[in-house]
Write a protein that binds this DNA or RNA. Sequence first.
DNA 1: TTTTTTATAGAAAACGATTATCGAGTAGTT
DNA 2: AACTACTCGATAATCGTTTTCTATAAAAAA
Lengths: 141, 141
Amino acid sequence: MEVCITSLLRDKGFKVTPQRLAIYNMLSSTRSHPNAEMIFNELQAMYPTMSLATVYKTMEILKEIGLVQVLNAGEDSFRYDAVMTNHPHVRCTECGQVEDVPDINIDAFVNEVSQGTKYQIMGQQFYFHGICPACQRKNSN
Amino acid sequence: MEVCITSLLRDKGFKVTPQRLAIYNMLSSTRSHPNAEMIFNELQAMYPTMSLATVYKTMEILKEIGLVQVLNAGEDSFRYDAVMTNHPHVRCTECGQVEDVPDINIDAFVNEVSQGTKYQIMGQQFYFHGICPACQRKNSN
DNA sequence: TTTTTTATAGAAAACGATTATCGAGTAGTT
DNA sequence: AACTACTCGATAATCGTTTTCTATAAAAAA
């Protein structure tokens, strides 16, 4: 991982800095699909001088070199995901958490759309919203 | 249509105003999935005193009474659609236009996800991005 | 290792979409 | 017509994100 991001950055003419490694490591070791502010807060303890602008600029670079994808789950801020495989996400409308939708093969559906439209399809994003198990339990009490 | 929005507004305690009718009529007679500013610009000629804030406030109400849905196609602004059936959208990454994906039945796919997750699914949005026919032609020249 | 070059980090300001505030005016009711 | 509550439009505020600028750190050159 470390090697991967290091060489990828260098190859594209970007410098390898502690901040970039820290941001990518934090993102690739969580499943919470954090937004910029969540990443910033998480890194505060270890990197007290980290700037929110640095998070944004780093995400821009990581997106450019293909290490993260940007999620837009219908909120007012963007979330980031270091898992680059194309998978649907589901957001809880009560607690706001965003999770992966597991064990779903989207290829057949994507192919159907690709063939049914005259667009040259380059990618897609699927977002579901609903109520997560924890909030369902909370509601039934 | 006119009757529909009029009674729906009244039933929910909202007043029927020329601005609200104009905004809804404009939205329901286009396929361009405009954002607030596009709606505002479109109505400038007929309603020169229309405020952008009024567009936003009206969209909030129309969403609440179930006459429009909000689209989030990965841009920095929201788009609006007066067609309430759940259908995928595709955005051209070159010219930025957003179109409906026609003739696609998403029910089977939605059901598969609903059963595969522990969430109580309430809705979903599918966005594709690619290059539209016009831009493909433009590129090949 | 030292020097030189160039990109970067961080602070602060700028930006843009959206929302809130408020006073004057209008819709719907009596 | 009169009354009440809601709404419009102008403006300011908000908030996520981007830009600007300068000291500094990373990489290259010497």
